[in-house]
Design a binder for these strands. Structure first.
Lengths: 253, 253
DNA sequence: CGCTGGACTACTGTCTACAAAAGGCAGGCG
DNA sequence: CGCCTGCCTTTTGTAGACAGTAGTCCAGCG
């Protein structure tokens, strides 16, 4: 008779705090907070004593981070935090935007009550965070809101890709020395979410697609230098186009 | 003096045959070949002696397969080959198609010589495989050709997602008892790749986008039952729409 | 003074072993 | 006869240790 306990309650626990999951979360936070910057080596032994876990769970965690695109593993060399070139920025932002468009096209017509409710909750959180003095929660809740918009489609695979891209984007924001500016922009950007929410409630598909286009770029454009190395032909063209559109939009304000 | 060996040649070996990679490949082949069917449990101990590797590399391999969407891990229950519902089919095929559209839109205008060359190679392989009696290589090379089309965009993240979706699609094809029919369709479908290739050479963006739309569906529609369980509202609507479009297209032939 | 060869260091890849938890099965009791 | 409970088996999660390889640094020679 060790413990009768409650054999049924364990069923509800969807997250038995496995060391791997904990390690993954801690590692992800380190990257997102900028403690680990792109290009930094990720040494297993160092991390194990730093996080207080053994190597196997840490390796699992690194696998997760790799899947999320935050670190890359080189076969016999070890792992590094994913280096970010302008081309990567191009990939992340352009794909992210495309996915938002797809999600809206697929999800808005459905108007699932449950998913709409989740979106409203995310919106409420966002507004609450915008009121707070600290700005860190603004970034987090803003990303959560966008994720909830994509979630309207009820498309798991689409959501997974979007989640990864969002994480990579946050890593980029943490990386850059102009991150503070980015956060401020995010706060100002939060005000733009209200009209978006109204379009959702109205079921205005076209309006949402239009609003979402170039919505994230504005925030993000400030976080990088365009004279950095690692440009590809398409990324160079893309940056030029975005900047021009941005200037145009500024004139209209 | 153990071995002077050739310390320089090892540099060129990009793939030191790590046990994990080997295990991943073997496991993937098992799933794609239908030896492991969706819903089957993936027992670690059984697989280790079957593949002749130890548990750690096998776990790494399972992580890779999970990332590819071929298996799912339930925390304290073990792993199973990803079960496929009609809703999953909807997700896979619809997203795959969207990505092809994006890739063409981004990639065709660039006309990178190197990527075009890769595509031509894939096309040559496909034509060669279509001549052979065995049909297995037709499926493989057909998927490779489509991947090369997506590769035109030079968008790594887009390609990765596409690769995953293709693998899941192949798993579905292996799963179904009407797989033989699907393969035959793929062979007939191979003939349709020639006009697509010509559109690429001509740089006809609109034409490609139009040709790619509903291109894969035809092949794939045969591989599933529409009366299966696991439908969602959107998947049901999607199936209905696709079937109608398909019938329409048949009439035009 | 520069280059090349070798040895060293430190990291990753792999394996064996242990502990804990969940599910299945059998036996007993109501 | 059915249900509940306790044990057992199976399987995963975790830990620590070992070997192999790649990169680096130093010393010796040209």
């Amino acid at each position: 008779m060790t413990e009768p306990d409650h054999p049924s309650v364990a069923r509800r626990i969807s997250a038995p705090p496995s060391m791997s999951a904990l390690a993954a979360e801690a590692l992800r936070d380190m990257v997102l907070a900028g403690d680990l910057r792109p290009g930094d080596r990720v040494i297993e032994n160092r991390l194990t004593e730093q996080l207080g876990v053994s190597r196997p769970p840490l390796r699992e965690a690194m696998r997760v981070l790799e899947q999320e695109g935050l670190i890359v593993q080189v076969p016999r060399k070890g792992a590094v935090v994913a280096p970010i070139t302008p081309h990567d920025i191009y990939e992340i932002v352009s794909l992210r935007e495309e996915i938002e468009q797809i999600a809206v096209r697929l999800g808005v017509p459905v108007r699932s009550r449950e998913r709409l409710e989740r979106l409203r909750l995310a919106f409420a959180n966002l507004e609450a965070a915008a009121e707070e003095p600290g700005a860190s929660r603004v970034v987090e809740t803003s990303f959560a809101f966008h994720l909830a918009v994509v979630g309207l489609a009820g498309h798991k695979r689409l959501e997974d890709v979007y989640r990864s891209l969002s994480l990579q984007m946050r890593m980029c924001m943490a990386m850059n020395r102009r991150a503070r500016a980015a956060i401020e922009t995010a706060r100002e950007d939060a005000a733009r979410h209200r009209p978006l929410m109204e379009l959702v409630e109205a079921g205005d598909l076209e309006g949402m697609a239009h609003t979402l286009a170039h919505h994230g770029q504005r925030t993000f454009l400030l976080t990088i230098e365009d004279d950095a190395e690692g440009h590809s032909p398409e990324s160079r063209a893309w940056f030029a186009r975005i900047r021009k559109e941005e200037e145009e939009a500024m004139r209209h304000d």
